[in-house]
């Protein structure tokens, strides 16, 4: 039996591989705070979203989490739950932004939304499943500030990448 693949399947596979590579490199970087990472793989999600639409972006984002989890050995661990929760939230908010924004947002807007949703989702999971302590709430504004900064940075990077495609 031969599995027939579409052009979209190949596209998703290639882009996911790219996102996984970025995710793995980032995982090797030490982080001062657990859960705080620049989230550079987000750049790929945003570029894919702007180029190929939400469907492809959602595939790439969720497959990236799955494959990275398998490769890093965190599959089905708390880290994986946080990663998946964050990715689901950001994919959901991107869908919402596309519906409500009617194409009004640019890469920076989408990236900021995705980063904040990712952080909020992660925080929600950490709070409800792992550390239901009110003291954790004090971290939320700090984490969201970082998400805002990293989201903006990723957005600017995504824009540069898209610009590069246009010129190529």
């Amino acid at each position: 039996m031969e599995l027939s693949t579409t052009r979209e399947d190949h596209l998703i596979a290639w882009l996911t591989a790219l996102a996984v590579a970025i995710h793995l490199i980032e995982a090797a970087l030490p982080s001062p705070l657990p859960g705080v990472k620049p989230g550079l793989a987000n750049v790929i999600t945003i570029v894919v979203l702007m180029r190929f639409g939400w469907r492809t972006a959602a595939w790439v984002s969720l497959l990236r989490v799955l494959v990275s989890g398998l490769l890093l050995g965190t599959f089905l661990s708390p880290t994986f739950a946080l990663s998946l929760g964050g990715a689901l939230c950001s994919v959901a908010i991107l869908w919402l932004a596309l519906q409500l924004g009617r194409g009004g947002f640019g890469p920076v807007g989408y990236s900021v939304l995705a980063a904040l949703a990712h952080m909020t989702g992660q925080f929600g999971i950490a709070y409800t499943l792992f550390i239901p302590h009110p003291g954790l709430l004090h971290l939320l504004p700090v984490l969201l500030t970082l998400a805002l900064l990293f989201g903006t940075t990723s957005g600017i990077l995504a824009r540069s990448m898209l610009k590069g495609f246009d010129n190529a």
């Binding site: 009004g104 969201l144 600017i156």
Partner: peptide, 17 residues
Amino acid sequence: WLTKADMLLLLFVTGLV
């Protein structure tokens, strides 16, 4: 770099934080 919606969003989100 930023669309009008992006700017509004950034303002809103900064306020929220």
